[in-house]
């Protein structure tokens, strides 16, 4: 039982790392672009398929770097041509439905280009080995996923803390009008922020594909838990989103050990309890986006 619990707990942690990466990208875009990006899952799938096509030429590592940037470039095109038009509309429904429609189109394009059948994404052989025979589930790849999630998060926080653009993004989150009046090009800033969010989705997509394989709808399974992670962690707090992702991942993993049928529902129950007990989430700010 102990080993089973450890196994499922570790699985949940990996899952939580995916959720956290997704939630970070979503929370970034939610913050500065004021957009619930429903296409985040589709961008994730797209980056994974890009890396699938690129891997024969540039290898897994090349794909891991180039494919999210390609997805980011597409994100830039979409942000500047479509999403940007809607920033001045007060009602959030428009960006929500826009990205929802875009997700449809992107999924359909993936299906048309690469086919509806699932595909495996080849990962380097040495990452596939279990590290020990007792703890068979501790493959190099799984540790690698956790490592990348940690490194990506650390990099994001470093950027937000120490670079000019990061400081501007944080300032824009609290008062966009003021930094605009101070001479910051907020259109450029919002584009940059959107692209960073998409690149995060792209990395999460490739990592997930290395473990679960590719299929056009692969983003659907991750985007909802990412929303829940944001609600549980608290809107407006990136640390909260990160924690939220890990918590619901762990909870889902541990539930799998005891009662597998409830492994998906449990995260919504956690969210419901959180909303009743502490509506602003773990680390959320009161009154943001309201």
């Amino acid at each position: 039982m102990g080993l089973l619990l450890l196994f499922n707990g570790f699985n949940g942690l990996i899952q939580g790392a995916f959720y956290a990466l997704m939630a970070l990208g979503l929370a970034l875009i939610l913050g500065l672009n004021n957009t619930i990006n429903f296409a985040q899952g589709a961008f994730m799938a797209l980056a994974a398929y890009f890396s699938f096509t690129l891997t024969p030429y540039v290898g897994f590592w090349g794909g891991l770097i180039i494919a999210p940037l390609l997805a980011g470039a597409l994100g830039l095109a979409i942000e500047t041509t479509l999403v940007r038009r809607l920033y001045n509309r007060k009602d959030p429904i428009y960006t929500l439905l826009l990205t929802f429609g875009l997700a449809f189109i992107m999924q359909d394009m993936i299906r048309t280009i690469w086919g509806a059948q699932g595909k495996p994404l080849a990962i380097p052989q040495f990452l596939n080995q279990p590290l020990s025979s007792t703890y068979f589930f501790l493959t190099g790849y799984r540790l690698f996923v956790v490592g990348v999630a940690l490194a990506g998060t650390a990099a994001l926080f470093a950027v937000l803390r120490f670079t000019r653009i990061g400081i501007r993004i944080r300032a824009g989150n609290s008062d966009l009008e003021t930094i605009s009046a101070l001479g910051v090009n907020i259109y450029l800033l919002r584009s940059a922020n959107f692209v960073i969010g998409i690149v995060f989705a792209g990395v999460a997509g490739i990592l997930a594909a290395g473990q679960l394989g590719l299929n056009p709808n692969m983003g659907d399974a991750l985007i909802m838990p990412a929303f829940v992670a944001i609600v549980v962690g608290g809107v407006g707090s990136l640390v909260g989103s990160l924690l939220g992702g890990l918590i619901i991942g762990l909870a889902s993993g541990i539930t799998t050990a005891f009662y597998p049928a409830a492994s998906e529902v449990v995260i919504y129950i956690i969210m419901g309890v959180m909303l009743v007990v502490r509506p602003r989430g773990l680390m959320g700010q009161e009154g943001l986006f309201e």
Binding site: A261, E264, F289
Partner: peptide, 28 residues
Amino acid sequence: IAVRRRGIYFSMITIAIGQMFYFIAIRW
């Protein structure tokens, strides 16, 4: 429960509650 928050947050909560029923229907 959902109306405790407004705006985008309200949307995210309603969608998550909805998905809960979806997963119950799939698993039960």
